[in-house]
Design a protein around this nucleic acid. Structure first.
Lengths: 417, 417
DNA sequence: GTGATACGTTGCCAATGTCAACAAATCATG
DNA sequence: CATGATTTGTTGACATTGGCAACGTATCAC
């Protein structure tokens, strides 16, 4: 419940314009006036301010076939970048994404064992330090981390990442201390949801559900009323633990009969006679489509029916516009789209399922990179004027990263000093 | 993606202040400055404007024990009212609620049979006409309708109200035409959720789930990130059709093994040997608590465990702060609160259930009246300046209501003319 | 080249919130 | 009861911002 003053108006308008050119790509000033409803002169002034701060660039107009003075094209800057980090069991991926949306680099550094939080921080910080040296002419707004686990939204604490074996790790604060950059952490599937929403299958949608099937389970994220729904603490989106059967098969959290227990990539690989380590989602999909084994079909049908139970509940409760399926769930869906659709329809209220679409994720390997970068950009998009002052002033801490990690134990009273 | 201009600032600030005094009760101007962060002089001007329009009243300061000049108390007007309507199978309830929050009247008019939409419109319009004559010195901002069924948010069309046997009824438009007042319709359980959120068990909460158990099924509503989540079309909140068992028992929509099929008031009444028509929620709760029959306990346990399955899924997906149970579900919960809590905990991720509370609804018989009135007030709260001009200028159409209904068939090409 | 069209640019204006100075109302103290 | 401290309302000057209208400019069609 906060009041608005003058500054807020300016802030809001700058934010809106930067969002439009960031998410919608290069846009003419004339289009911006139409989209925002603001006056031509206002748009001119606002764009000039953004350009002055180096956040957008104005290009000469595209040749158009229309009469009238051509309007300059406003594009998000390619010089302003965010760093995306995704820790996994066997590797850490670091990406560099420009405000213009372009993914400049993705660096995947394999690890021998599943990294501890401190190891992950050190490795990430050293990659980031290298990147900063190489890309010294770019402005880095911050680091976004896609974490496979529950992340407390209030302070970025990694409550539980079963995949990595982390419990209550202040990864966010550690990485911030090690790099000197602002760091924001969120659940990977939630970031996948927002990436698909802004740049993938869900463009322009306000209510969507994203479900991702990985080798170790099923995660998800939701967009409700146009905003990413994190829930009270940020743990929302755990569709994998929805109960779908009365079997005693348990999932990674030890709960029986859940979606994650019944619908697994391993079971699909087994009936196909494939190895997980050699099979990505595309290969799995091809194999499923190519197979004419009745055993495979039966397993696909079994899993789809369980998936339908979970989706139906979600549709009844959330009435989304779109369900996006990623990872092996996309392959499963592709194997028999009609079956899934019919099974969901049978378990939902007619009206609620009316306009629901089920679609595969469009963003492939860049999904989490884009999503995590988006997270890092959020502060800038929210208040361009405020943030822009900081990003230029950041010293390159890079080399000292490892020392800093060792020296700093932020927010963790349990560690000895 | 809209730009902000000057008018929006004023509109927003007026809206904030009116919301604060409406939802939070009488508030001193000094408190308003602190809550909004606006300047003293600005608050003064804004409150004066609201007072001038008759939306708030300034009272002499409460005697306080603090030094300093006492600050005038700003209270929402008691002269500005909304009309709340709740059609049911056997009656129509019409309430009058002031902007101050006070419920002035509730009129329950029984019907011999379940009313058709047209009958419901006529009956409602005649009650409203009487009310307007009796309350001619009050300003009516509009009518809010709590509908037991799916309501399309975009135009208020009642898609399906199984209870009443309505399908695709333009109740909203018909009632608007019959009364000449603005009418807004929404699902009853969603309104219950927002009523509990603003004035009941969920005050100040941003993420809550509301589940209501009625004689004919289970409905619900959700608040996600501080806003009522309607989903794409407005059908969100149908928790009753979540699958909780593999039994073949079907619910009102014909879906098997759902919460609504397994958890029913009738089954509780049966083991208690009670009659539904004579037993309200309080009586049911007393009977459950008083009973020492093992059959009753077993049925309570059975139902609680199924309820836990549905709640657990919802907790995992939505990570709410609070679950509010109304109707017979409150009685069920009261009968064995620990069992429900433990059963939900067993099926949820530890972290996600950490801070979740389960509580009975606090608003009793006024729940839907308050919720529906809130819906009608929403337009005024959103833009006090704009709406206030209209409410004074409305002619009293009352007497001609029935004729208007007969003469107007809005948005319904299927009716003969 | 001329006109039509669409858009950027410029200077002026109105609306609004902030601020500082002052006035008013209360309590505590003697 | 007078005085001071404290808190808050009130008032008028002020800065910021977006809207607006007039004008300039760049393109297309003929």
């Amino acid at each position: 419940m906060q009041g608005n003053n003058h500054d807020d108006v300016r802030r809001h308008n700058l934010s809106i314009i930067l969002r439009l050119v960031h998410r919608g790509g290069a846009t003419s000033r004339a289009q911006l006036t139409r989209l925002t409803g603001l006056n031509r002169s206002t748009i001119g002034a606002l764009v000039a301010e953004l350009a002055e701060h180096g956040l957008v660039e104005e290009r000469t107009p595209d040749p158009t076939k229309l009469a009238g003075r051509p309007s300059p094209i406003v594009a998000a800057s390619g010089q302003v970048v965010a760093i995306a980090v995704n820790p996994e069991i066997d590797a850490i991926t670091v990406g560099v994404v420009a405000l213009s949306g372009e993914v400049y680099r993705t660096i995947r550094r394999a690890t021998a064992t599943s990294p501890t939080a401190t190891e992950a921080v050190q490795l990430t910080a050293s990659i980031v330090a290298d990147l900063r040296r190489e890309m010294s002419e770019y402005s880095i707004v911050g680091i976004g981390v896609a974490m496979p686990g529950l992340v407390r939204a209030s302070d970025g604490l990694v409550r539980h990442a079963p995949h990595l074996g982390w419990v209550d790790e202040p990864f966010c604060d550690l990485l911030a201390a090690a790099t000197g950059l602002p760091v924001v952490v969120a659940n990977d599937a939630s970031l996948g949801a927002s990436a698909e929403r802004y740049f993938g299958a869900g463009q322009g949608m306000t209510d969507l559900i994203y479900l991702n099937g990985g080798s170790s389970g099923i995660g998800g994220g939701l967009i409700v009323g146009g905003v990413v729904a994190g829930g009270r603490a940020g743990y929302a989106g755990e569709f994998g633990h929805t109960r779908v059967s009365s079997s005693s098969r348990t999932d990674s959290a030890g709960i029986a009969g859940t979606l994650e227990a019944e619908v697994t990539r391993d079971a699909l690989l087994e009936v196909l006679g494939l190895r997980g380590s050699e099979t990505d989602a595309d290969a799995l999909e091809r194999a499923l489509l190519a197979s004419d084994s009745p055993i495979v079909h039966a397993e696909v049908a079994r899993q789809l029916d369980f998936l339908a139970v979970a989706l139906a509940s979600a549709v009844n409760v959330l009435n989304p516009q779109l369900i996006v399926l990623g990872g092996f769930l996309a392959a499963l869906h592709a194997a028999d789209p009609d079956r899934l659709s019919r099974a969901v329809a049978a378990r939902t209220l007619g009206a609620a399922f009316d306009e629901v679409q089920i679609a595969p994720a469009l963003l492939g390997s860049n999904l989490l990179t884009v999503g995590a970068a988006e997270l890092a950009f959020e502060a800038l998009l929210l208040d361009p004027q405020e943030i822009v002052g900081n990003i230029a002033a950041q010293p390159v801490l890079g080399v000292r990263a490892a020392e800093l990690v060792a020296a700093t134990n932020l927010h963790d009273p349990h560690l000895p000093d």
